[in-house]
Design a protein around this nucleic acid. Structure first.
Lengths: 166, 166
DNA sequence: AATGTTACGTTATATTATAACAACATCCCA
DNA sequence: TGGGATGTTGTTATAATATAACGTAACATT
């Protein structure tokens, strides 16, 4: 009965970002291999860029980053990769930002909630069972079958709050 | 301490839609008068169209409806009216649909949640204190100051579920 | 009426995303 | 191992959503 309650806290300012990218990529590769999903060169690079940006990033930003490193790319190039990565549960789309972010529990197909800082742009991914069960209860009362949830909370993170009163 | 728990259930098939539009417009006018907000001809008509559509409706759909009735209108025309109506808490934007829908409790500036039927396109507006408090608790734990919530659940409503097994 | 403010009209453009089809790569198995 | 099926990427064009910038008109107040 125990449900996961991971929280990717807003990352500490001094965390080892290179390691966290590498870890995410390793996990993605293992996951795709296990499931027979084709994490091609392009898809791998897009995923890597998303993690490297370290916060939700737009499709056209990614596109520009790809072309700047010499690859021929047009919008469909990036959107197809994003579609693959989303279907494979390796990234999430943040609807309220039209932006994409790496998933913290790849392949889990969990119901994620996001807390998005309007100042620094970072997004914290949560999986709060209480929110999920409250929604489930409402849905039951309505006779509504839930397919997709979009739970996004915008505001100011603790770090930015403490550093804005200069 | 009692918090509202309104539910605009998915409207019954036989509800009196004309009355519900008229009622919404009356409320909006009273509300704007009381607050000194200028519900101009254009804004009033946009609000009326939104209610008349009876489900979340896109900006360009509204634009077309306006032009079809002879009014000169370009995108800014409609977006400015939508901005006014949102700021005045008379409509909501449904982020996941890029669409706009009439608010059931005008001026209340409440935290709304939406259950959106992917079949019929109707959206039910809720205000579930449990969801709200779960989010507040997470925010507190993160030290996060909440500004805006986007809570949208897509799926199939009871009515469509019962009528799809033909 | 003069003035400031708000709303609206108008043109252009930004931003996000998809359609359609051709070229290429990979897989599978007969 | 060759050849068709499938899946991936390239390419061009365009759709869908939203905003910038600036001028004009309406309105409100004095």
């Amino acid at each position: 009965m125990s449900r996961l309650k991971h929280t990717k806290q807003f990352p500490a300012a001094d965390h080892d970002h290179k390691t966290c990218i590498a870890h995410a990529l390793q996990e993605a590769e293992a996951y795709c291999k296990q499931r027979g999903l084709r994490l091609t060169e392009l898809r791998r690079r897009v995923l890597e860029l998303i993690w490297a940006n370290h916060q939700p990033v737009g499709a056209y930003d990614l596109l520009e980053q790809l072309t700047h490193e010499g690859r021929k790319a047009a919008p469909p190039t990036i959107y197809r990769s994003l579609d693959f990565l989303m279907q494979s549960d390796l990234i999430h789309r943040i609807t309220s930002l039209n932006a994409y972010v790496g998933c913290n529990h790849p392949g889990l197909n969990h119901a994620a909630q996001f807390f998005i800082c309007e100042d620094c742009g970072q997004a914290a991914e949560m999986d709060d069972a209480k929110i999920e069960s409250a929604i489930a209860k409402d849905a039951k009362r309505l006779g509504f079958t839930v397919e997709k949830r979009t739970i996004e909370v915008a505001g100011i993170c603790a770090h930015c709050k403490h550093h804005s009163n200069t």
